[in-house]
Design a binder for these strands. Structure first.
Lengths: 144, 144
DNA sequence: TATTGTTATACTCTATAACTATA
DNA sequence: TATAGTTATAGAGTATAACAATA
């Protein structure tokens, strides 16, 4: 009979396949002037958590501070985020959404989000609910 | 009051954030000699569906045939997949896992899968079940 | 003419390493 | 000495465009 381990392994493989495929689809979904997945993710975190340092954002997104630095630099250049000096530690830099950033965030991620929304709307209500409950679990997978 | 649309939008954003983060984590999880996420995905599909053409694999993984060609070329070079001529259409090429590929697949993806398995094992049984039910829904999001 | 695959090239994303500034 | 961020460089992953072969 199947051991719990083999079930766990199959689940891990299936999850890996599913998220890999979805991410590729999302990356391919672009509108002219659209923001990348990394840019949108960083902006969404900034909107939720307020001013945040590069290192904290990098941790939240599971990337290295240098990589997050590049993402933030691209957003800063477009005027979507701006830096603030940290009140007590001169080494740290807080990044925050600008009013422009806040106002264009959802518009410039429109293609990606619409693609997911359209797909979600094709699910039944219970299915949509099941997916909604699973999202925090996926986020927690990354935790430790 | 919140319209169904705003709920759908929030769900789409949350899902996008969660899968982006998980994919970054998986990509970072490597062991020496380990296979990449794209390589493992292609091999998993080949194991499930048997010999498949470049174009069909590309469709399944939401990438362009040229990109899948590069993934398959890297696997072929390592002797993990091999090509077979299509029985009736001389243009098409079927790729199949070699015995070597089948035997090393799970071992060379060990770090990535173990990372997910460990995280899954920290969930409660109902949570794990909820996540398992959501996986086919995520796969279906990509569908059309 | 349409389709499958290949080759060449470029861009995005992220990583590692070396450096500067502050604690 | 340790930590936050920057700069430079490299590699993986994927896309687009141009091409060859077969249908």
């Amino acid at each position: 009979m199947a051991t719990p381990d083999s079930t766990l392994h199959a689940l891990a493989v299936d999850l890996t396949l599913a998220v890999g495929q979805l991410v590729r689809r999302l990356r391919a979904e672009t509108d002219p002037g659209g923001l990348t997945l990394s840019q949108l993710s960083a902006m969404a975190r900034l909107e939720r958590h307020g001013p945040t340092t590069t290192a904290d954002l990098a941790r939240a997104e599971s990337m290295k501070p240098q990589s997050m630095g590049a993402v933030l630099a691209s957003l800063e250049q477009e005027g979507l985020v701006q830096r603030q000096s940290h009140p007590t530690d001169g080494r740290q830099i807080l990044f925050a959404l600008t009013p422009l950033g806040a106002s264009v965030r959802s518009r410039r991620g429109r293609a990606k989000h619409q693609c997911v929304e359209a797909a979600l709307s094709r699910l039944g209500p219970e299915e949509r609910q099941a997916l909604a409950s699973a999202i925090p679990l996926i986020s927690r997978l990354d935790g430790s």
